[in-house]
Simulated scan of single mutants.
Amino acid sequence: MKYYIKLLRPKDWAKNFFIFVPSFFARHIFIAEKIEHLLAGFVAFCCIASSIYIINDYRDIDDDRKHPLKSKRPLASGKVKPSYAIIICIVLIILGSALAVLANPNCHFLFILVVYFFLNLAYSFGLKNIAILDMLILATGFVLRVKGGAIITHVDSSDWLIIMTFLLALFMAIGKRRDDLLLKASSGTEMRKSVSGYNLEFLNTMLGLFGAIIIVAYISYTVSPRTIVRLGTYRLYYSSLFVIAGIMRYMQVVFVTQRSGSPTDILYKDRFIQITIFLWILSVFILLYLPNSPIFN
Rank of each mutant, 00 (worst) to 15 (best):
H108T: 13
W280V: 04
Y250G: 13
N129K: 14
C89V: 00
R192D: 03
P82S: 07
L183G: 15
A103T: 12
I275K: 05
V155W: 01
R145G: 15
F272K: 11
S51W: 04
K15I: 06
K128W: 07
G78T: 01
L110Q: 15
F118R: 11
A212Q: 14
Q274T: 12
I266Y: 01
L182H: 09
P22H: 06
A122Q: 04
R145L: 11
S239F: 08
N120Q: 09
S51E: 11
N120A: 05
V80M: 00
V114F: 08
L113Y: 10
L167A: 14
L288F: 03
S23H: 05
V216K: 12
F171E: 06
S239G: 12
M164S: 13
D265I: 01
G78Y: 00
V216Y: 14
F142I: 02
L267V: 14
S83K: 11
F20V: 09
F20G: 08
D57P: 04
M206L: 13
W280C: 09
M251S: 10
Y289E: 10
S187D: 08
S187R: 09
M1F: 04
C107N: 09
T189P: 00
K176Q: 07
L282V: 10
Y58C: 06
S187M: 07
L136V: 12
I93E: 14
A173K: 06
K6I: 02
I94P: 14
M135T: 11
L183I: 01
A98Y: 15
A14G: 04
K11S: 06
E33C: 00
I93G: 06
A14V: 15
